[in-house]
Write a protein that binds this DNA or RNA. Structure first.
Lengths: 166, 166
DNA sequence: GCATACTAGACAGGTACCTGACCAAATTAG
DNA sequence: CTAATTTGGTCAGGTACCTGTCTAGTATGC
C-alpha cells in the first residue's frame, strides 16, 4: 500500500459508509453485466425482487425498496424503456397503474434479486459470518436507535417498518 | 411502530448503509444551520478540516476527503461563491492554484470540522462507545479486505492509504 | 350527493457523488 | 534542449437519490 498502512488512520465514519455503499453498487452492476443484463443500472435492480406476478403499484415498490416514490418511478420508467417492465391499468384504482414484469423482466428477475445476496456472500467470505452478521446487526441497531431518539429521523426511516413513505 | 417490529426484517445491507449515510449528512446540515452557516451544503463541509493557513491544492483536498478531484472542485467552487474560500496562484506550480480560507471561512471552519464529530458523539450516546467503535472497526476492516481481495476495488479505495486518486 | 379530504403519480429542480475527454503547465528522458 | 510523459484542473455528461408542487382520481362526512 502507498502510505503508512499501520498508522490507524481512523477514517471518517461517513467516508466508510459511502465507500462501502459504492462497492456494493458496483458489485451489483458487475453481476448483472456478467449475466447479460448490462443495461440494468445498479440502482434499478432493487425493483425486481418486489414485483409479483399480479403486479404492484409504484407506491408500494417504493416502500419496499426504501426509496421515495419519485425515485422508484424513475427506476420503473428506465426499466420500462429497457423492456423489463410494463405498466398496466389498475382495475381497482384509476389513479394508479400496476407494474408487471415482461418476459425479459422475468428472465432478469432471479439474477437481479440474487445480486445483492451474492455480494453479501462474498463479503462474508472476506471477513467471517460472525463478523459480517455483527456488522449488519450493529448498523441496524444504530439506525433503530436514531429513529427512536429523533421523531424527524423516525419519519425518514419508516422503511424500517411498513408505514407510509411520503 | 407500524408493522411487526419483532419480525427481524433483515433489511438489505445496502439500504442500511444508505439510510445511515443520509442521517449523517442531514445531521451535518443541521449543525451548520444552527451555527448560522446554513449556506454550506453538507457535502461541502468536508473541505474545511483540510485547508491549512498556507493553502492547499484541490487535488490534495480531494485525496484527503476521499472524493475525486472533479467533485472537490465543485465543492470549492460552491464555497468560493459563498465567500468561504479563495483560490490564489500557486507560486510553486503554475498549473494549480492554492485554496485558502477567507475570514468567513475561518469562522466556519471549527463548526464544519466538528460537525461530523458531533454526530458521531451523538451516535455513541445512542448505542455505547464499545458498540460504535466495534461498528467503525468492522466497517474499516471489511473495506480493507475488499481492497486487498480485488485490485480494481483497491484502486477505488486509495483514500484508505495516501496514493493517487485519478 | 356533493364538498372535502386524501391519495397515486407526474413534473420540476436540486445534491453529492461518479467517469471520460481534454488542455496547459511541469517534469523527465534521450 | 527538445520530445514525450505526467499532472492539475476544467468541461461535459451521467447516476441515484432527494424535496416540493401539482393534477386527477378516490374515499369520506355530513
Amino acid at each position: 500500500m502507498g502510505g503508512d498502512s499501520h498508522a490507524e488512520k481512523r477514517l471518517r465514519f461517513s467516508l466508510l459508509l459511502r465507500l462501502l455503499h459504492r462497492e456494493y453498487a458496483l458489485g451489483i452492476e458487475a453481476s448483472l453485466a456478467e449475466a447479460g443484463f448490462g443495461d440494468i443500472r445498479s440502482g434499478d435492480a432493487k425493483v425486481f425482487p418486489f414485483v409479483p406476478p399480479e403486479g404492484i403499484q409504484v407506491r408500494d415498490l417504493a416502500i419496499r425498496a426504501g426509496v421515495r416514490k419519485q425515485t422508484m418511478a424513475q427506476s420503473v420508467d428506465q426499466l420500462e424503456r429497457a423492456g423489463y417492465l410494463e405498466r398496466v391499468p389498475n382495475p381497482r384504482d384509476g389513479r394508479s397503474r400496476l407494474v408487471v414484469l415482461t418476459e425479459r423482466g422475468r428472465a432478469a428477475r432471479p439474477v437481479a434479486a440474487s445480486a445483492g445476496d451474492a455480494i453479501e456472500r462474498r463479503w462474508i467470505e472476506l471477513t467471517s459470518p460472525e463478523e459480517f452478521d455483527a456488522l449488519h446487526g450493529l448498523l441496524h441497531r444504530l439506525l433503530d436507535r436514531i429513529g427512536r431518539a429523533d421523531p424527524d429521523a423516525a419519519v425518514r426511516l419508516t422503511s424500517l417498518d411498513d408505514s407510509r413513505l411520503d
